[in-house]
Design a protein around this nucleic acid. Structure first.
Lengths: 222, 222
DNA sequence: TCGCTAATGCACTAACTGGTTACTTTTTAG
DNA sequence: CTAAAAAGTAACCAGTTAGTGCATTAGCGA
């Protein structure tokens, strides 16, 4: 009869018994629901009432924890960036040969976009709003710096090993790696119509990943 | 869409004295204002009242000519696709050597996105709505087919001339050419923050175009 | 000149939307 | 045990939004 109630938050950290009222859990539910709703409809199209309902929370709670709809959006956007940058850092590419490191990064980027489609939509929405929310975030910049230097290191190692050509701007390379995956996936609906093929079919996805790895390796090869 | 009849159309085109009532001119003003408003705020964020005001037309006219907000959006989206595909056809790439033809296409795509930023935003908005409007358009498919075969021809000619490698999928190449320009420009706001440089500075744009041409040529080279 | 049709304008509404007020209930520090 | 702080709720509000009903007017063919 008694479900072993997994303590999602707070109580787990402090070791106290679960609460009927749980601020952290409510916050987390709101964040999760909001991420979906914002990703599905954009900042403008998202409805606060819908978020509250999906989160099984009262609308008042959203304003209690996040001040405003935009405050909520900003939090979610920041989390999204921190999430992907953290995952990238965990790749440990420095232990791999330059070519393998780069291939792994291309593969990771593709897989991440595929598994976290809301990241793409959130970024699109933020760009529609001229990055006004991201501008306020200092954390994102710190994480990004580490990311760029990660790719720069791979390039340097490749040049030294004689497998990559010299003089490639790591930022341009980063943008290109993101671009060839991001564009394909964000425009998968119009793309499937324009090119008259299902871009999301299993083999189409595999083919695209292979093509992307090939594109990047040819781009950097000595 | 339908060829504009010189006799019945606007004074602007024919040079005849202006009418107080001019259906075609009003329609055109609505279309123009709506393109801007949709591009700026997306389908959901665009306001019909704002469109009417910008077009110096009564809101009633929008519903008279385009039935609904979505009907208006659909018309604008379709026009946008027809416009870019028509411009591409005018490039006359068949008269150029394969490498030059491809470089010219990359350059054109980049310039077109730069000069017509609303195209990108409209496409993004349409993908947020899972391409429900584009699905209804048959014209777009016809134009797209011609576009793909244009690139296929360049590839074939390049292979025959021994300058391109064989076996490249023209659709994948098309997607990649679009991607490396589109991604950079659509994410110019978040990108400028993440990479801590002004991606829209004149020299940054020139550098990116050079990088993109290089990327594509390396991708196809034998 | 007349009458019909298409173009236009104004005022209105029903549904929504982000945000708030006023209140109850639970948790926890002392 | 108690009081205050925190968590949670429902009803509500003022402004906005896409879309309309209806009257008016200009232009065109006969």
């Amino acid at each position: 009869m008694e479900p072993v109630d997994e303590k999602t938050t707070g109580s787990a950290a402090t070791g106290r018994k679960p609460r009927t009222r749980d601020a952290e859990a409510t916050k987390a539910r709101i964040l999760d629901a909001a991420k979906r709703e914002f990703a599905k409809n954009g900042l403008g199209g998202a409805r606060v009432d819908v978020i509250a309902e999906k989160a099984r929370a009262n609308k008042r709670m959203i304003y209690h924890y996040f001040e405003s709809k935009e405050g909520l959006f900003q939090t979610i956007l920041e989390n999204a960036y921190v999430d992907i940058r953290t995952a990238e850092q965990k790749l440990n590419l420095d232990h791999l040969a330059p070519k393998e490191a780069l291939e792994r990064l291309v593969r990771f980027t593709w897989d991440y976009y595929l598994k976290n489609p809301e990241f793409i939509t959130l970024v699109n929405s933020e760009n529609l709003h001229r990055a006004k929310h991201l501008k306020k975030s200092e954390v994102v910049k710190v994480y990004s710096r580490k990311f760029v230097s990660m790719v720069a290191t791979i390039l340097d190692r490749g040049v030294e090993a004689g497998v990559f050509r010299a003089g490639i701007d790591p930022v341009q390379l980063n943008i290109t790696i993101a671009a060839i995956g991001y564009y394909y996936l964000t425009n998968r609906f119009t793309g499937s119509i324009v090119f008259e093929r299902d871009l999301m079919a299993k083999d189409a996805l595999e083919e695209r990943l292979r093509f992307n790895i090939d594109t990047i390796l040819r781009l950097v090869s000595a």
